[in-house]
Amino acid sequence: MSILKIENLKKSFGKTEVLKDISFEMNEGEVIAILGSSGSGKTTLLRCVNFLEKADEGKIYVDDKLIYDAKTAQKMSAKDQRENQLNFGLVFQSFNLFPQYNVFENVTLAPKLLAKEEKNTAKYAEIDKKAYDILAKVGLSEKLNNYPCELSGGQQQRVSIARALMLDPKVLFFDEPTSALDPELTGEILKVIKSLAAKNTTMIIVTHEIEFAKNVADRIIFMDDGVIAEDGTPAQVIDNPKNERTRLFLQKFNELK
C-alpha cells in the first residue's frame, strides 16, 4: 500500500504548461528528494499536492483513498479540503512564520484552534507538552518566548519545521528549505531533516543540495520541463544518470564544485 499516489497531474498557468503528466507513488517512511533546474515544475508540484494551487488534471491518493480529483475539485467543500490538507505538512522556503506570535504560540496556534473547534479544550495541556517536546528536538527550548524577528534564519526554519510536525502529517514536504539561508545555517536545517529521516518520517524534499539529497534520500526524482525525467535510488540517478538532461544538470553542478 502506498501512502501517497500521484496520478497524471497536470498544471498550466495561462499558456505555460508547468506540469505535464506527473505520476509517482511513495511508501510510508520513504524519503524522496526532488531535484531539477529552476522552472522544471518542482515547486508547482509541491503546491498542487498541498492544495495551494489546483491541478488542472489528475488525481491524488493518500493511503489508497482518493483525496483530490481535478474533475470534481471545484465541488470540494472547504471542510473536505481542510481535512485532506491535514494529511500533509509543508515547510516553506521563506519560513512564513506568524510575526506577531512568539515561537511557542506559532507552534501551538493551529492545533489549539483545531481542538477548540472540536470543543476539546482539555487537549490544550497535551498540545503544550507536545510543543515543548518537539521544540526541544529541534533545539529551540531556549527560544520559546522569542519572536520570529529575534531569531536567525536557521532558527526560524526550525520553528517552521516544528510547527508542521505538530499536526502529525502523513507526508512532510519541504520546498527548498535552505535556499534562503547561508551555508552555515543550512547545516543546522539539514541536520534536523536527517534526524527526522532516521525516525522514518515520510518526506518529500525539493532541494538544490545534491550531496545532501544523496545522503538522506531513499529515492531521487529528477524533474525537467514539467516531467519526471528520472526516478530511482541516489546511486542510479546521481551516479549513473540515464537521462541526458540529468547528466547535464549534474555535470554543471560538479563543475561549480
Binding site: 495551494l52 490538507q85 509543508l90 516553506f92 493551529a110 484552534l113 508542521a164
Partner: peptide
Amino acid sequence: AKGQYEAGQVLGMT
C-alpha cells in the same frame, strides 16, 4: 504577505 495566508491554509486553518 501571501505566505501568511498559505501558511495558515497548510496548517488546516479556515
